[in-house]
Design a protein around this nucleic acid. Sequence first.
DNA 1: GGCGGTTCATAACGTTCA
DNA 2: TGAACGTTATGAACCGCC
Lengths: 361, 361
Amino acid sequence: MLNERSSPGSNATTTSRRTSVCSSISERPDSCAASTSGDSNSSSKKRGSGNKICKVCGDVSYSFNFNLISCESCKAFFRRNAFKKVSIGCSSKIVIYLNYINLRCPFSGNCEINLISRRFCQKCRLDKCISLGMKKELILSEEERERKNKMVRDKRIRIKKERELVERKKLERALTRTENEPEPKEEKPLCEAKLFPVNKSECCCKCQCGKYSQDRSLEEIFSSILGYPNLNTSPHQQQTSPQQINLEANILTSATTNIPTIPPLPSNFGNSHLLNEKISPMQQSLPTSIPTSMPLSAQMAIQNALANFNFQQNQYQNNNLIMNNNMFDSLMANGLIKPLYLNNTVFGTTQNQIQPMDIMY
Amino acid sequence: MLNERSSPGSNATTTSRRTSVCSSISERPDSCAASTSGDSNSSSKKRGSGNKICKVCGDVSYSFNFNLISCESCKAFFRRNAFKKVSIGCSSKIVIYLNYINLRCPFSGNCEINLISRRFCQKCRLDKCISLGMKKELILSEEERERKNKMVRDKRIRIKKERELVERKKLERALTRTENEPEPKEEKPLCEAKLFPVNKSECCCKCQCGKYSQDRSLEEIFSSILGYPNLNTSPHQQQTSPQQINLEANILTSATTNIPTIPPLPSNFGNSHLLNEKISPMQQSLPTSIPTSMPLSAQMAIQNALANFNFQQNQYQNNNLIMNNNMFDSLMANGLIKPLYLNNTVFGTTQNQIQPMDIMY
DNA sequence: GGCGGTTCATAACGTTCA
DNA sequence: TGAACGTTATGAACCGCC
Ligand SMILES: [Zn+2]
Ligand SMILES: [Zn+2]
Ligand SMILES: [Zn+2]
Ligand SMILES: [Zn+2]
């Protein structure tokens, strides 16, 4: 009586161990239906129809796997365990000969396999898989898998190389272009879609507006990244406080969102009389050449920085705010503006405690 | 009579083992209450959700154990005592046959089991475990445990042996190398062990597997950093305990304070596999000329920025950290490093209120 | 779209130690 | 005894070839 071992699936517990996404879809509870009714493309969720039932455990099945209509979990289970040695039971002599036991039923050896009990007994689950017709010959061998993986890896590398080559060519052309040479009418040579290759054409926020990852210039990308408190944020709405959004919108949307705006200074700051001086024009200089050995993004960043200086006007041009050299120098000297790579929060940290979130956002 | 409980097995428990997306949405109040009740510290203390309640004693539960939602203590209790002989009472004949009594209720045999009283009576606690559906068959047998432990031991020994072999090979090569013979171009010039000098040979997670801090290249380190949501994550699992964070911080700051800290990325952001590819060296270029019409401080700043790039080595040199172009590009593209003049906290402000100090520091 | 494989977070076993 | 953690199995989601 004490050793009475019942089949694990015999007691009908209605406890669903894991409500899988698939089954919940088929059952369509109200909350689920409400949530999934919005997105039309359920293809991203699961490919295939899913109107079949796993012969082994009764879960939702999407296709044949190893010659049997079976669910994703039984598919993975069979691939993992099909080649394990099976002990038929404690009483069998084969146990002694095998010298080890991989799978042994802890119950009476005829477990009912359903969605809940399938994890209780590996042996009976595997037995059922085999007896219902799963073929271990359809599992790829070690060499076959290795060969296939290598092909995929090589292909990825090749594609990446080609893309890099195109990008570098484009950048070189842009940098070596002389002044008299006419600017090609390509105002957005490097778009976001190339920097962040996204398979799907939708936006990251599922709105399918197509605005994201398509044609945003590098400047727009950077400014958007820097402007958002979180990288996860949708590109459409940056949820800062509402007032700030409005204020920002007034300033930024007037001209170009690319040009950074300069915060107003306290009136008693620095030598205000310097601002009243006349701007003495300096001699004009040659355009800067940025070494191409640098990382591409560094080149672009510096290029961007230099672009903010109007050498002809000898002024720092920024929207309708004009900052002259003296003012700039004063701000720098007072440590009020500085390039980030000089900032200790990035490349050199003086802090003992590392707090990435605080640093970056 | 003895088994009279408030609600033994009759009530169909609708508890889902793993709350799916849909059901968790529908069960929002529960999860909300559980998440808000705990501190942020306590959440990192224990892995798993912990929003369940032990059916046996009412303590917090993190998962099913032996087919019953139960706490850690009841789990351990059941494993220890499930195979002990149970005396159902003095009147039972089985007591005589068993010749000894392991578990006997000191009270009337129907103890209420809660978080406090669970220690008082082993028998009633075990009875409750069994009656609520715990399956002793799911406890690994002696030989299964032995086999598993042996496998773990063997694996550790094997990994350690392999590591020692590599070390010895390396040492032999170094010893047989003559002095005029050039240093071989080591494919992993800077390994993790050099970056993060760890005295002990073990892994940070005490497993002594030896996988960590030994031979990982910089690319591997960075890709792992980018792949993991947290810098301090164990290389084996993504679980952070406060102690590990502190330890890791100490290690990091002591070794290289200049390594840029990387905030956690959204898991679906970017293609982290890009980092694993080989470095394609770019052609060397001439030193940069900075236009003299710029503000002096700006010239110096850019000069300083450029000085951080080692054009000869085609690398970004920063103390003992060598970052290659691909890595740099990836970090830039992901917005993880950026020059400050692109940062809206300097040139572009989202605030209307003038707060230079807050903006700058 | 079917059907192989891989990835990776987590569930759920076990062990350790105070 | 139970909190904490090591380790493996599991399965949902995805990738890529045909
Ligand atoms: Zn199945
Ligand atoms: Zn079985
Ligand atoms: Zn309990
Ligand atoms: Zn009792």
